[in-house]
Design a protein around this nucleic acid. Structure first.
Lengths: 225, 225
DNA sequence: CCGGCGTATGAAGGATTTTTCATCGAGCGT
DNA sequence: ACGCTCGATGAAAAATCCTTCATACGCCGG
């Protein structure tokens, strides 16, 4: 589950936020000062930061500016008692993704947290699909029907190539050239062998055949959606 | 510049939003009904959708739900006169990324639009940098000073991890947990060994040291730009 | 039905990657 | 400066991945 960092100096509020968010299943870590918050944000692997503006020593705006400067990428939800429009604009422009004014309903905080995490993970997606097969090019994870499939580098590259040419036939020469980066007349049957291991891994329990043999030509990954 | 779609049935508000956003340099298209909004969102290449909730025929919630269903990915900012917490939660949970209650300050709308667009483009970024080192997460190619560097899977993942935590210290435990996906107290020094191979490959001819040892803590990839 | 061509398959060999281990060296506190 | 701890390093073992090869199978034309 996602890891949240809450930076808030009011003990009672901090405790109740932590408890509430943990009950929702989040992994919550906390800090009570701007300095500690900064430290935790840069050292723990945080998925979302909930940051109070009014903090002793270093205020939230400053912490956030410094973090973004450093390349801190996760979404940030600012909390504050200050309800002036200028404050909200300052917060957003110093790198916050959302801005919630105290007092707020916990349920709304939750909804905003969900929205921020949802977008963050959605935007990172670079996914190729066919049938119920999903290939994430960034995380390099392959999933079919909720089941994760482990592929080696070559297998992954071959599958990516087939997916990019979805519903059209690719010849062995094309594969040799583009996946193996070898001259046209590659003598061996490496590609055949890899097609086999791909089939074994991808078309196992699942009965829908994706990779079709085009006799005399090559292979085709078909998505009859 | 980014293209925004505004869906709003109040003519005067729509016109003033359009004008104001265009003055900021955005490419603005509009719709006055839920149906037209849905159509435009699915056919024009929209970077951000500003969506009113109260619309004739199909209301904003429904339009949004249908759009997300269809795979509509861009961020959505909902506008509404309804200020009940439940409405905001409904909006966020049906796929909105932000929710602004009328009447609002135009400057705040602008700040929220900036924040949404900023996050969206940042998350799509697929290149990590430090000094003159570039790591492309999609092609998995690593280049320093124009020279291509070949990394194995583990080396690449470790480097990516260090870069994602640029300018902060990562402990061996963090590396073990997040790169090797192993429980905390991993007994061996695999990470050390990989740090070494990374250093050898990345800090070769180039004299600028990137990976620093933080004695007693871990390692830090520093970018003193 | 048979032969021939093209594809599938199993297994082995080779190459690379990943991990372990033993030892060396460098920084830090006393 | 000494000793101790932590990190660096080289090399070898283990695991995995990639390629090759020999053979089996199946489709298609005659």
């Amino acid at each position: 589950m996602a890891r949240l960092l809450i930076v808030e100096d009011q003990k009672k509020l901090l405790a109740s936020l932590q408890r509430g968010l943990q009950e929702e299943g989040y992994d919550v870590i906390t800090a009570a000062t701007g300095e500690d918050g900064f430290y935790q944000a840069t050292t723990a692997a945080v998925d979302l930061l909930i940051l109070d503006v009014m903090l002793p020593k270093r205020d939230g705006f400053q912490v956030l500016t410094d973090l973004r400067q450093q390349g801190f990428a996760p979404p940030v939800l600012m909390l504050t008692a200050r309800d002036r429009v200028e404050d909200r604009i300052t917060g957003l422009d110093s790198g916050a993704d959302d801005y919630l004014v105290k007092p707020f309903a916990f349920a709304e905080l939750l909804a905003r947290v969900r929205a921020l995490l949802r977008r963050d993970s959605a935007a990172r997606e670079t996914v190729l699909r066919a049938d119920n097969l999903e290939v994430n090019l960034l995380s390099r994870r392959v999933v079919r029907q909720g089941e994760e499939i482990e592929l080696t580098r070559r297998e992954f590259e071959l599958l990516e190539y087939l997916l990019r040419h979805k519903n059209s036939t690719v010849t062995r020469d094309m594969i040799a050239r583009d996946v193996w980066k070898e001259p046209s007349g590659s003598l061996t049957n490496v590609a055949d062998v890899y097609i086999k291991t791909l089939r074994k891994k991808i078309e196992r329990a699942d009965r829908v055949q994706l990779i079709h043999t085009i006799r005399g030509v090559g292979y085709a990954l078909r998505d009859e959606a």
